[in-house]
């Protein structure tokens, strides 16, 4: 196991970067140019006061894009991974919160969002579960990147790599 880890770590790191970064970039890109939709989606969680929720709805897609690009090109990977993981944990908490309060919404993760018709309650609940599992997987990728930020095809290289070899 530890041998495998040593051998493949640079590839696993690359995979995690592309996974977390790719999802963030796509999610941000799909929402960035539909600001009212994104603002409405955040407000639908009914966690924050409406004005603040709207502001976050406007800003969040751009943060996702920025983090996504950083992770994909591999620049300040560790920092971007911490932020990306934090974002995922917040998403998970938000979905658990709406689920627990019995609110039925579309998560608006990749655009869309807002309330869901009560007749589609079971679909919405299944979607919540899938979203939590997906974000959990992405958060784990982020945590891996925190410990192993250096891998293949990355702009950033460990400074003292050469010395150690």
């Amino acid at each position: 196991m530890s041998n495998l880890q040593t051998k493949y770590q640079p590839f696993i790191t690359l995979l995690c970067r592309l996974l977390l970064g790719g999802v963030l970039l796509v999610a941000g890109g799909l929402k960035a140019f539909k600001p009212s939709e994104s603002a409405g989606a955040v407000a639908a969680y009914k966690i924050l006061p409406t004005d603040l929720a709207h502001l976050i709805g406007y800003a969040l897609p751009w943060l996702e894009i920025a983090l996504g690009i950083l992770l994909i090109i591999g620049l300040t990977t560790r920092l971007a991974a911490i932020a990306g993981t934090a974002v995922m944990i917040i998403f998970i908490a938000a979905i658990i919160s709406v689920w627990a309060r019995g609110i039925l919404i579309d998560c608006g993760c990749f655009g869309g969002g807002g309330e869901v018709d009560p007749s589609k309650a079971s679909e919405a609940h299944r979607a919540y579960l899938m979203e939590i599992l997906r974000d959990l997987g992405l958060a784990l990728s982020g945590i891996y990147l925190y410990f192993f930020p250096y891998g293949r095809l990355s702009i950033e290289k460990p400074l003292h790599n050469i010395e150690e070899q």
Binding site: A32, P35, S36, S38, L55, Y58, A59, W62, L63
Partner: peptide
């Protein structure tokens, strides 16, 4: 980037 994006969105709306 985030601040510019957010301001751009608010003004657009």
């Amino acid at each position: 980037v985030v601040a510019t994006g957010a301001i751009f969105s608010v003004v657009g709306e």
